[in-house]
């Protein structure tokens, strides 16, 4: 059966590795690269704790083979903060108490990030639908939804600042 060479970018860093075809992307990230921020919860593609972005779209890394990520751009929770500064979405989770035990949080942040990057002015209902693939057993979701709604305008400012657009 052998191994296969994969070459992908993870959080902007090129990575090359020999993997067994049956290696799941989540184990490649956690055990191969030491990026343990991505969690394995249910392991049956239900809970969303393993959510990462692949080419900018949220996916469940427990239900993808590492070989399927060959040539792709993967972003994990470790790649969200920039230069030691929390991303506006992470800061919003902190400020709005969007977590309790924290286990689902990396997946929640990644699902929300993928969603907000394409839907910069969401409604509460659309945020709840966007989180359909992520389970939280602590919060009842209220503060998670609040965090994401709070992050949207902050992210728009963030994007504008990155693009050199004057504020005001």
């Amino acid at each position: 059966m052998g191994t296969r060479r994969v070459s992908l970018r993870v959080n902007g860093v090129p990575q090359e590795a020999e993997v067994e075809p049956r290696t799941l992307l989540v184990y490649f990230l956690r055990e191969g690269l030491g990026l343990t921020g991505t969690k394995v919860g249910c392991d049956t593609s239900s809970c969303g704790s393993c959510t990462v972005l692949m080419d900018g779209e949220s996916v469940k890394s427990c239900t993808l083979l590492a070989v399927q990520a060959d040539g792709r751009e993967v972003t994990t929770i470790e790649g969200v903060a920039e230069g030691g500064e929390l991303h506006p979405l992470q800061r919003a989770f902190q400020e709005n108490h969007g977590l309790q035990c924290g286990f689902c949080t990396p997946g929640m942040v990644m699902a929300a990030l993928g969603y907000l990057q394409k839907n910069p002015t969401p409604s509460e209902e659309s945020v709840r639908l966007a989180l359909e693939g992520n389970l939280c057993r602590c919060t009842g979701y209220t503060n998670i939804v609040r965090s994401i709604l709070a992050a949207a305008p902050a992210m728009n400012g963030h994007a504008a600042a990155e693009a050199g657009v004057p504020g005001g």
Binding site: G48, T51, M54, K60, G114, G133
Partner: peptide
């Protein structure tokens, strides 16, 4: 079908 992540794949 499923959820957004599932529908992306």
């Amino acid at each position: 079908i499923g959820d957004p992540q599932v529908r992306h794949k």
